[in-house]
C-alpha cells in the first residue's frame, strides 16, 4: 500500500516540528461549553502518554473572565484570542482564526466538541491544513513511538471498532460528541499559563442578521434521570405512546434509537448513540432496541440498563443489567400495571 501525504499540492509536514495537544474550547453564547471541557479528560491521558503540553484554545470577544476555566479542568496552558471581530460566530471566520494559531504553534493533536458549530467549522480547519480528521470518536489512544493519535469509532457494521490514524500528516483532528467523556473535576487552585494572541481575523463574507434563543420545553435526554427508549422493534409510532405512559409514570422521558428516528417516530434531538446523544440517566429502559455498538456508546455512562426485547439472542441482553424476553406490547403494559399496583398498596 502506498503512503499518503505525497500529494504535491500539499505543504510538506515535518512531524517533529508539531508538538502539543490542543482542545478547542467553545465560548459561543458567552459561556464555556461543557462538552469542550469534557475533552480535557482524554486530552490529559493523551498528553501524559506522549509527554506533551495540554493546551486549551479559546476564541471570542470579552472572554477574559472565562479563559482560566480550561486550566481548572486540567489544561497546562490556555491560548486565546479576544477580539471584537469574533463577537459573532461565523464558521469561516472562526475556522480561519483557529488555522492562524495552528500555523503558528503547530500542535500535533486537536480535539473539538462535536456540537453543531464544532461539526460545522472543524472539518474546514482540517481541510485547509490538509490534515486528517475523524468525526464522532468514542475513544482515543496514542502510539508513543510515532506519536500517532489513534482515533477510535464504530464504523459501518455494528460490533467492531475502527482504529484510524493519520500517520503522515499533522495536526491530527477529531470531533467528539458531548457527554462521551466525563467532565474532569474542577480545581480552582490549579495554575497554568495564559497566552493572549493577536490574530488578523479575516473579514466575514457572511452576515448574521438575527439570532433568537428558542425555549426547549421537554427535559433534554442528556439531562434526564430516567429514560424509556424505543427502537425499531416498536413497529409504529403508537408504540411510543405506550412508552410515554411508562415514562410519565416513573418520572422519565422518552428517547429512541436511530432506526426509530429514521422511521420518524421520534425527533433526532432524542436519539441516543454515537450520532445522537450520550446519556447519563440512572435508569435506561431499552425497548425493542437490538443493542448495536453505535447505540451502546450512547449509554456508556448510564446507570442501570433494562432491556425488553422478544429476541432472546438480541445483543442488548449482553449489555443490560436486567432483561425481559417478551413482546413489549405485553411487557410494557404489565410493567405499568405492576408499578401502579405497588404504589397503591
Amino acid at each position: 500500500m502506498s503512503t499518503a501525504g505525497i500529494c504535491p499540492e500539499w505543504d510538506l509536514i515535518i512531524k517533529d516540528e508539531w508538538r502539543g495537544v490542543w482542545i478547542f474550547v467553545e465560548t459561543f453564547d458567552g459561556e464555556v461549553n461543557e462538552a469542550s471541557l469534557q475533552l480535557l479528560n482524554p486530552g490529559r491521558m493523551i498528553a501524559d502518554k506522549i509527554k506533551a503540553k495540554l493546551v486549551g484554545v479559546m476564541l471570542g470577544h470579552n472572554i477574559r473572565h472565562l479563559v482560566r476555566e480550561p486550566i481548572y479542568y486540567g489544561a497546562d496552558e490556555v491560548i486565546y484570542v479576544d477580539d471584537p471581530a469574533l463577537s459573532t460566530y461565523t464558521p469561516e471566520v472562526y475556522a480561519e482564526t483557529l488555522i492562524s494559531l495552528v500555523r503558528k504553534y503547530k500542535p500535533e493533536i486537536i480535539l473539538a466538541a462535536g456540537t453543531l458549530r464544532g461539526r460545522e467549522m472543524i472539518p474546514y480547519v482540517a481541510n485547509i491544513l490538509r490534515a486528517g480528521i475523524t468525526a464522532d470518536c468514542t475513544d482515543f489512544d496514542v502510539d508513543v513511538n510515532t506519536r500517532d493519535l489513534i482515533m477510535i469509532r464504530p464504523p459501518f457494521g455494528a460490533t467492531l471498532l475502527a482504529h484510524i490514524r493519520a500517520p503522515e500528516r499533522r495536526p491530527q483532528l477529531s470531533t467528539v460528541r458531548p457527554n462521551v467523556f466525563k467532565l474532569p473535576s474542577r480545581d480552582v487552585s490549579r495554575r497554568g499559563e495564559l497566552i493572549e494572541e493577536k490574530v488578523d481575523v479575516p473579514p466575514p463574507r457572511i452576515k448574521l442578521i438575527s439570532s433568537e434563543e428558542v425555549k426547549v420545553e421537554e427535559v433534554p435526554i442528556e439531562k434526564a434521570e430516567i429514560i424509556v427508549s424505543g427502537g425499531r422493534g416498536l413497529g409504529s409510532p403508537e408504540g411510543f405512546k405506550l412508552l410515554e405512559k411508562l415514562a410519565e409514570l416513573v418520572g422519565g422521558v422518552v428517547a429512541g434509537s436511530r432506526k426509530a428516528v429514521d422511521a420518524g417516530w421520534i425527533p433526532h434531538e432524542r436519539q441516543v448513540g454515537q450520532t445522537g446523544k450520550s446519556v447519563k440517566a440512572s435508569l435506561y429502559i431499552a425497548v425493542g432496541i437490538s443493542g448495536a455498538a453505535q447505540h451502546l456508546f450512547g449509554i456508556r455512562e448510564a446507570g442501570i440498563v433494562v432491556a425488553i426485547n422478544n429476541d432472546p439472542e438480541a445483543p442488548i441482553f449482553e449489555n443490560a443489567d436486567y432483561g425481559i424476553v417478551a413482546d413489549y406490547r405485553e411487557a410494557v403494559p404489565a410493567l405499568i400495571e405492576e408499578i401502579t399496583n405497588r404504589r397503591s398498596r
Binding site: 490538509r130 475523524t134 460490533t159 471498532l161 475502527a162 482504529h163 484510524i164 493519520a166
Partner: peptide, 12 residues
C-alpha cells in the same frame, strides 16, 4: 490522497 488510514477493527 487520504490522510487517514483505517488500521484495524477490534471488538467493542
Amino acid at each position: 490522497g487520504s490522510p487517514t488510514r483505517v488500521e484495524k477493527s477490534i471488538a467493542t
